[in-house]
Amino acid sequence: MSPETFLEYSAVGAICIMTVSMIFPLLRLFRGPSLPDRVVALDQIAIIIVCIIICDTIYSGMSSGLDVALVVSLLLVIGSMIIARFLHKRRSDND
């Protein structure tokens, strides 16, 4: 088995595992008792999707997927900061 074949099989296996691992954050997203719990679950789902994009890039061999993963990751960081600021402002307004 060549290293390229092993890497492709590993990428497919990782994609399958990550797809299954999205079940628990989805449950937390829909059942979450509070808004911060749902935000964390949404961030976790987005990170898993970025990892799936990276594994798909490894499998397909096209490097453009890494650019997509980088842009999505940057948007996730900015979005998380915006949501954290909103939750902090909302909490301070209630006090």
Rank of each mutant, 00 (worst) to 15 (best):
V68Q: 01
L35A: 14
P25H: 03
L35W: 10
G13K: 06
R91L: 11
T57K: 03
F6C: 11
T57E: 00
I82N: 07
T19F: 08
R31W: 12
A46H: 08
I82T: 12
L70H: 05
V71W: 02
I82V: 13
L75M: 09
V50F: 02
V71T: 06
L70R: 02
I58G: 03
L70W: 06
C51Q: 11
V12W: 14
V71A: 04
S63P: 07
D67T: 09
I83N: 03
R38V: 05
F6M: 14
M62Y: 12
A11C: 01
L75C: 06
L74C: 06
S64N: 13
A84Q: 06
V12T: 11
C16M: 15
S10V: 08
I54H: 05
V72H: 00
P33I: 10
G13Y: 08
G61Q: 00
G32L: 03
D93A: 14
S60T: 09
C51S: 15
I45K: 06
I48L: 15
S34I: 10
L75G: 07
L70E: 10
G32E: 02
D95H: 13
I83T: 12
I58R: 01
D95C: 07
I23E: 06
P36S: 05
P33A: 15
D43L: 10
S21I: 06
D95E: 15
I53A: 01
P33W: 00
H88T: 15
I48Q: 13
V68L: 07
S34E: 13
I78H: 01
V39P: 03
A41S: 08
I54W: 00
L66W: 01
Y59T: 08
I17Q: 06
L76V: 08
Y9W: 15
M81E: 03
I52H: 03
S2A: 03
A11T: 02
M81W: 09
A84G: 05
L7A: 12
Q44R: 13
M22K: 03
L87C: 04
L27Y: 15
G79N: 07
A69E: 02
D43V: 10
S63N: 10
S21Y: 03
I49H: 04
F24Q: 12
S63C: 04
V40F: 11
L70V: 14
M22G: 04
F24D: 07
R90V: 07
V40P: 07
C16F: 15
A46W: 05
M1Y: 08
K89A: 13
